[in-house]
């Protein structure tokens, strides 16, 4: 094991090292980059640099879009659930009746989800595309490794 005095000596030596002076160009580069960023219109700056109203407007718009999108996606499911929870629906049932009704709803939801799945042809197309990407990437890597390890 390393003895404690060696470690302490090394720690003292390292701690005593002066700071490395930053290059002269650092300050220039930072200020030039800041000037470049500030010359851009506000919508091309980072979100923190946006006007307050624009930030809030963006948040409200984004939430609105999200709400619409989720509503559209889950509309069939929510309709089925709402129908089940209406008076006389699932809520009014008890015991085995409720389980049977629940299973029926699950089946309906399952059918809706299955209908939303892409067709077999689009799945085949997607699989072909991803397989080609993986194949090309792998063969490219193999060729690269072979060439770099055996440059002759």
């Amino acid at each position: 094991m390393q003895d404690q005095s060696s470690i302490q000596w090394l720690h003292a030596e390292l701690s005593a090292l002066p700071l490395a002076p930053a290059p002269e160009s650092l300050q220039r580069r930072v200020l030039a980059e800041l000037a470049l960023r500030q010359a851009q219109p506000w919508w091309r700056q980072s979100f923190h640099g946006w006007p307050f109203a624009a930030q809030w407007g963006f948040v409200v718009l984004a939430l609105g879009l999200l709400h619409l999108m989720l509503g559209w996606l889950f509309a069939p499911v929510s309709e089925a659930l709402a129908a089940a929870l209406r008076p006389g629906g699932l809520a009014a049932l008890h015991g085995m009746q409720a389980i049977a009704a629940g299973a029926a709803i699950a089946g309906r939801v399952g059918r809706v989800l299955l209908a939303a799945l892409p067709t077999i042809w689009s799945m085949v197309l997607m699989m072909t595309f991803f397989s080609s990407v993986v194949l090309l990437f792998t063969s490219g890597t193999l060729v690269h490794r072979t060439l770099t390890r055996n440059p002759e």
Partner: peptide, 14 residues
């Protein structure tokens, strides 16, 4: 900010 940078740039760079 320039003064802030000058004060700390050596530490950050090191």
């Amino acid at each position: 900010f320039v003064a802030f940078m000058r004060a700390h740039q050596d530490r950050v760079y090191s």
